[in-house]
Amino acid sequence: MEFKVPTMAELMAMGEEPEILFWVGCAGSYDERAQKITRDICKILHHVGIKYAVLGTEESCTGDPAKRAGNEFLFQMQAMTNIEVLNGYNIKKIVTGCPHCFNTIKNEYPGLGGTYEVIHHSQLIQDLINEGKLKAEGGESFKGKKITFHDPCYLGRGNNVYEAPRKALEVLDAQLVEMKRCKSNGLCCGAGGAQMFKEPERGDKDINIERIEEALATQPQVIAAGCPFCMTMLSDGVKLKDKEQEIKVLDIAEITARANGL
């Protein structure tokens, strides 16, 4: 990267505290496609000049997939270890690159001693747009392009965040088209509830194919996502439908970074 991404350990060594902690998440850390989104979130944070930091190698899984699979022990072990790290650094505000991390830290950590202000990166982008710190200029133009947004379950239904990602798209002056099942009726990509890590049960069809067919029906140029797991499922769907050339699957953060030439 062209700039240095500060870690909490480094800031602490300098006796400083960040305004916000960027919680990267496992997919954002290890998955090649999601790593790009992670870097774009950093570029946005850097661009607007917010004082931020990441945990780097001190970060660990929030425990979300363990909890959804039913392993409460493992979840709470992960949660308490993470809370110890977060509280040790006196963290107040967290932005996550993943709706699953967002939901877990925001809703399930407080009961275990970890209370923070937690936002998803689409909400950060919305706030920055509202504050006038972020526009859509100086980069790729999305003007008039057909974009459809796929609501991640744990952002939408799970936490009632429907407008923030749409706000990030509206500012592009693009043509926002909704799928038949959107917002509170949005159809899952098929990855939630620890499905990401297993083969689907027998059935007629894979869930991501059902979803991608619905997305394709809107004839989009871009399918926008807000979750690294949705990203995997939707990208696979587009590939299987042989539409990779015409349709891009991009995260809200990537679109924002591109529109601003970051």
Binding site: C26, Q35, R39, T57, S60, C61, M196
Partner: peptide
């Protein structure tokens, strides 16, 4: 500390890209 088989020491490698 991740649902995939990656080393915790590699967690911050994304910054190299």
């Amino acid at each position: 500390g991740a649902p995939w088989k990656y080393a915790p020491a590699d967690r911050f490698n994304w910054v190299e890209g």
